[in-house]
C-alpha cells in the first residue's frame, strides 16, 4: 500500500467517524424516541450505550430513514444462509491452513562462517 493511499484511507476513516459523532449525537438525543417507542423515557446510560452504534452505523440507519424502508420485515429462519456461508468459508480456511504450512519461514544454517565470528544463539 502506498503512503499516499494509506494517508487518504485514514483521512477518510477519520472523516467518517467525525460525521458519525455528529449524526450519532443527533440520533441518540432526538431520533431514538421517534424510531422506537421503547426508547421513550429510557435512561441516560441507554443513550450512552447506543451512541457508538449511532456513530458507526450512521449510513445504515440514515439511508433506512431516507428510503423509509419497512423496518419490520417478517422474521425468517436463517439456517440456510449460515450453511451457505460455512460451505464457502470452510474450504477457504482449510486452504489457508495448508498454505501457512507451506510458506513457513526457515533459514538454512550457514556452515561457511568464520569460527571467530560465532556467538551463542541464546544471548
Amino acid at each position: 500500500m502506498s503512503l499516499a493511499f494509506a494517508h487518504a484511507f485514514i483521512a477518510a476513516l477519520t472523516f467518517y467517524l467525525i460525521l458519525g459523532a455528529v449524526f450519532g449525537l443527533t440520533h441518540v438525543v432526538f431520533l431514538a424516541p421517534r424510531l422506537d417507542a421503547g426508547a421513550k423515557g429510557s435512561g441516560f446510560w441507554f443513550r450512552v450505550m447506543i451512541f457508538p452504534g449511532a456513530a458507526v452505523l450512521w449510513p445504515l440507519w440514515l439511508f433506512g430513514l431516507i428510503l423509509r424502508r419497512a423496518r419490520q420485515s417478517p422474521p425468517k429462519p436463517w439456517r440456510r444462509l449460515h450453511l451457505r456461508l460455512w460451505v464457502v468459508l470452510a474450504p477457504l480456511i482449510v486452504l489457508s491452513l495448508m498454505l501457512s504450512l507451506m510458506v513457513r519461514p526457515v533459514i538454512p544454517k550457514n556452515d561457511t562462517l568464520p569460527a571467530a565470528l560465532l556467538e551463542r544463539a541464546d544471548d
Partner: peptide, 19 residues
C-alpha cells in the same frame, strides 16, 4: 466493531430484524 456497537436490541429494531 460493527457487530459490537449494534448488539443492543434497539439496533435490531431500528435496522430491521433481517438486515
Amino acid at each position: 466493531a460493527f457487530l459490537a456497537v449494534s448488539s443492543h436490541d434497539y439496533w435490531q429494531k431500528v435496522l430491521g430484524s433481517s438486515f
